[in-house]
Amino acid sequence: MSTQVPKEPETEEVETDPVVKSAQDRRIREKAERTARERVKTDEAPDLEGEDTRVIKVFRYDPEVPEKQEPRFDEFHVPFDKGMTVLDALMYARDTYDSSLTFRHSCRQAVCGSDALFVNGSQRLGCQTQLGDLDEPIRIEPLPHQDVVKDLVVDMQHFYEQMEAVDPFFDPDDLPADEMAEQAQTRANREKIKMSTRCIWCGACMSSCNIAAGNNDYLGPAAINKAYRFAMDEREGSDKKRERIEIIERENGVWRCQTQFSCTEVCPKDIPLTEHIQALKREAVKENLKFW
């Protein structure tokens, strides 16, 4: 299921039959009910009286826990300190109120790309978003246009497949004869690819893209940017470059982009994605002219 392309909640995953299928299901149900009761209790536990607090409203869904099969929002009150991020707030809520609150996170410094979320209506990294900059109520949702696995966790498989569809690896024509010699690269060329190499595979761009939302086969901004990273690297081999240009100019490649710039706006690493897509369109035209 997805937060943005609403389906009826009664999908095949959803348990409509009240008959308990197995001991395991019964366990899940009973424990979920108890956990829900506990949560209400502990919700009141920390004394936040007199403290500066913020309210976060967090999307909840779990395909196999009865009370979470119907998507809902839970509110959590978190104490606020200057410098606190959306990720800090989520971790506080999880560790204090409800340990079943589920989201991906790891490095806490905007390099692992795990915690791209939909915060107050735009794609951002939880760890890079200051709570103090957001209007209340703060709504935290999973990335739109991707299947939700549970709570804020989306299925990234399709994103990875698109990334891998552009042959995302270096393939030079030949290497220096001296095996300890480097392939030279000018500073200007390194500068040209620099921004494209910053991608952390967070998926924010793909989630923000209208074209990708309507056409699941569109390669999307991240994958095209990956192609740009190699195509524009002067060390790259000419055969591989031609192959890769062929990939990105197919039906679901660069020509689908309608330059709406939403990807560029949401990229947490400030990569000029739309510009890179446009540059590859020009590159594709040039490459084709060569063979006329």
């Binding site: 270096f170 030079p172 290497l175 300890m180 030279a184 690269q185 000018t186 190499t197 690297d233 060390r235």
Partner: peptide, 22 residues
């Protein structure tokens, strides 16, 4: 040294000196 050169041969985007070397 050979492992670093191997990374360069795999296309790693090292910073570069004016002469084009890492």
């Amino acid at each position: 040294p050979e492992e670093v050169i191997q990374l360069e041969h795999w296309g790693m985007a090292f910073s570069r000196d004016d002469d084009g070397r890492v």
